[in-house]
Amino acid sequence: MRVDDFDFDLPPERIALRPARPRDAARMLVVEGRAMRDAGVRDLPALLRAGDCLVFNDTRVIPAQLEGQRGVRRDGAASAPGAKIGATLHKRVDLRRWQAFVRNAKRLRVGETVDFGSGVEAVAEERLADGSFILAFAGDEPVELLLERAGTMPLPPYIAGKRGADDADRADYQTMFAREDGAVAAPTAALHFTPGLLDAIAAAGIATETLTLHVGAGTFLPVKADDTDDHVMHAEWGRIEPETAARLNAVRAAGGRIIAVGTTSLRLLESAARTDGTIAPFAGDTSIFITPGYRFRAVGGLMTNFHLPRSTLFMLVSALMGLDVMHAAYSHAIAEGYRFYSYGDSSLLLPER
């Protein structure tokens, strides 16, 4: 399909720069089949059915945004110091190496060291075909500890471009389910949940489960191709435990719906789904790219925030609900003053099945 088909105009004032407070006070647009209505996140227990199951991503965002200066080469050869280098880690390679998107990459050569301050240094070990680098961090401390010293929260560019990250973002850009270090972007649909809302969901007979997908910075990369067939997704690592898969399959067998909380949960569930719709245990990379025409196997609904024009995530929701339905829904949301993107309001998408 043409990428232009997924374009729409969004007024800049619709982009949320801070989350709703309290978190579950956000609005929620409910789209069921072709019908839509305005609601709130707190209405969720009444909008689902007893026996349904909400699936959350328990990844934890690490402070993966680094700012530094180019240093000397690892082999001791001369290298002009001083060039400012920005790095956004987006995928772990092993215990000491991460793949990173680099700002001012033309000034960085393989073998050079970047000093990120606070005693944190990394060698530009390899440049990949997509222009990103493999950074190998010096020392013996876990990289996560190094990032806590030198890194900042990697806010999405549409927020970071309007204001810098601050101390509030350390808590705001983290869901209540965050357990497993490794994401460089939050699974933002789950930012709306509070302990009180979870209690109400349980009281309504709705189950909850968690999986892990370490969201990469590739989720913010623009689609540069003119046709969706020519776009290549970045891989992300995920895991669904055998016990979790078994409980989810029991939900489906009993007639309940699996409702993914966020596109990250949905993509991992669909990556693990067998042809009959059952979910297999999963541990590994996924680069699934869902566009209209995709046949959903496991997921019966999606709770998600509002996404960027021409983005892979708007393509995903259009695959679930229909492109014309989502254009109408987004037009309604814009007209009614919904807040967009990571810190914005939510939508509940329930396709006709």
Rank of each mutant, 00 (worst) to 15 (best):
R42S: 13
E32Q: 15
E32H: 12
L48V: 11
V30M: 01
G40N: 09
R37H: 14
G33T: 00
P22G: 10
M36G: 15
G33S: 02
G40P: 03
A20Q: 09
L47W: 09
A26D: 00
G51R: 07
L44Y: 14
R49K: 14
A39N: 01
A25I: 02
E32T: 12
L29I: 11
G40W: 00
P45A: 03
A20G: 05
A50M: 06
L29S: 07
D43F: 06
A20N: 06
D43R: 03
A20S: 15
A39C: 07
R42K: 10
D52F: 13
A25F: 04
L48F: 14
R23Y: 05
E32C: 07
D24E: 11
D24Q: 03
R21I: 07
L29F: 11
P45W: 05
A25T: 01
L48Y: 09
R21Q: 14
A25Y: 02
P45G: 13
G40A: 14
M28W: 05
G33C: 02
D24C: 05
L47P: 06
E32M: 11
E32I: 04
A25P: 00
G51W: 09
P22Q: 04
A50Y: 09
G51L: 12
V31M: 12
A46C: 00
R49N: 14
R23Q: 01
A25Q: 12
M28Q: 03
D43L: 06
A46R: 13
A26C: 08
D38K: 06
G51Y: 10
G40I: 00
P45H: 05
R34I: 06
D52A: 06
R27Y: 06
G40F: 07
R42N: 03
L44Q: 04
G51P: 06
A50Q: 13
V30Y: 01
P22F: 13
R27C: 09
P22S: 02
R49M: 09
A26F: 01
R49V: 00
A46S: 11
R34A: 15
D24T: 03
D52V: 06
D24F: 08
D38P: 10
R49E: 14
P22E: 04
R27T: 05
L44E: 04
A39G: 13
A39E: 10
P22H: 01
A26L: 04
L29T: 09
R49S: 14
V41L: 04
D43H: 04
R37D: 06
R42W: 02
P22R: 06
G51A: 10
R42H: 04
V31I: 15
A46L: 02
R42V: 05
R21E: 12
R37L: 07
A35Y: 02
P22A: 09
V30T: 01
E32F: 02
V31F: 04
A50C: 09
L48N: 05
D38M: 07
R34T: 15
R49C: 13
D43T: 00
R49L: 10
E32W: 01
M36N: 10
A46E: 11
M28I: 12
A50H: 04
D43M: 08
R37W: 13
G33P: 01
